[in-house]
C-alpha cells in the first residue's frame, strides 16, 4: 500500500473530535510480541475459537438431552437445522441434500461470528475480506469443479442461453461469463462490507458521544444502529447461505 503512511498521519489529529472507526478491525497478537506469523495466536484466533464454542454449545451441548419435547437451546438448534435443511431442499432439490453439512457449516459459522462481533469491544472476524474471500472462493471453486465433474462440458450450457435468439447468444454468453466470475467478489464483499459498514457507523456515532450536547442523540442513534445490525447480522448470513445454495443448484442443474 503506497500512500498509507501519509494518509494515516493526517486524519488522526483534528482537534476535538477524533474518529478511529477502523481501529476495531486491527489484528493484534494476544500475548504480546510484534510479529504476526500465520500461526500466531491473535484476536482473530480468539473470536474464531469463540464462534466454534458457540456453535458447539448450541448444536452439541444444547441437544445432548435428546428430548422428544425440546428445551430452549434444543429448539433453536432444531430450528436452525430445519431452516437450512429446508432451504437446501427447496433450492437444490433432493440431490443437493448431500451437501447439507457443508452449507450448515457455512451458515452456523457466519451467523455465530456475526452475532459475536456485535458484543461491544469484540472483534468481528467476518468483517475482514481475508475471511469472507476465503469463504466465497471455497464456494466458488467447489461449485465450479462440482459442475464440471457432474455435468462435464454440459456445464458450459450455463453460459449459453438456449432460450434467447441465436444472434443474441454470444453477447449473453459474455455477460453470463462476467457475472459468473463476479459472483465470488460480490459474494464476499457483500458480507464483509455490510458488517464493516455497520460497525464503522456505530463507531462514528460513538465518536460523536464525546460532545456532551449531542451525546443523547448519539446514544439513541447507536441503539437504533445496533438493532439494525442485529438484523443485518442474521440476514447477511442467510443471504450468503442462500446464494451458496443458488450457485450449488446451478452446478447440479446447469440448464437455464
Amino acid at each position: 500500500m503506497a500512500g498509507q503512511a501519509e494518509t494515516a498521519a493526517d486524519g488522526a489529529e483534528k482537534g476535538g473530535l477524533v474518529f478511529h472507526p477502523m481501529d476495531q478491525f486491527i489484528v493484534k497478537p494476544l500475548f504480546g510480541g510484534d510479529t504476526i506469523a500465520w500461526y500466531t495466536l491473535t484476536n482473530v484466533t480468539l473470536w474464531l475459537a469463540l464462534a466454534v464454542l458457540a456453535v458447539v454449545a448450541l448444536l452439541v451441548l444444547g441437544t445432548s438431552k435428546r428430548a422428544i419435547v425440546p428445551g430452549r437451546s434444543q429448539s433453536i438448534a432444531e430450528l436452525a437445522y430445519g431452516f437450512i435443511y429446508k432451504m437446501v431442499e427447496d433450492i437444490c432439490g433432493k440431490e443437493g441434500l448431500k451437501y447439507f453439512p457443508y452449507i450448515m457449516t457455512l451458515f452456523m459459522f457466519i451467523v455465530s461470528a456475526n452475532f459475536l462481533g456485535l458484543i461491544p469491544t469484540a472483534f468481528t472476524t467476518t468483517s475482514h475480506f481475508a475471511v469472507t474471500v476465503v469463504l466465497a472462493l471455497a464456494v466458488f471453486l467447489t461449485v465450479t469443479i462440482l459442475g464440471f465433474v457432474k455435468n462435464g462440458t454440459a456445464f458450459l450450457g450455463l453460459f449459453w442461453v438456449s432460450s434467447a435468439p441465436l444472434a443474441l447468444r454470444p453477447i449473453l454468453a459474455v455477460i453470463e461469463l462476467i457475472s459468473y466470475f463476479v459472483r465470488p467478489v460480490s459474494h464476499s464483499i457483500r458480507l464483509a462490507g455490510n458488517l464493516m459498514a455497520g460497525h464503522a457507523v456505530i463507531k462514528v456515532f460513538a465518536g460523536f458521544a464525546a460532545v456532551a450536547v449531542i451525546s443523547p442523540v448519539s446514544v439513541l442513534a447507536i441503539t437504533a444502529m445496533f438493532g439494525l445490525e442485529v438484523l443485518v447480522s442474521f440476514i447477511q448470513a442467510y443471504v450468503f447461505t442462500i446464494l451458496t445454495c443458488v450457485y450449488l443448484k446451478d452446478a447440479l442443474h446447469p440448464s437455464h
Binding site: M87, D90, I91, R190, I235, Y238, V239, I242, L243, V246
Partner: peptide
C-alpha cells in the same frame, strides 16, 4: 427466498 436474493 427470491425476495432476499433480489435484495442481496
Amino acid at each position: 427466498a427470491t425476495l432476499f436474493i433480489g435484495i442481496a
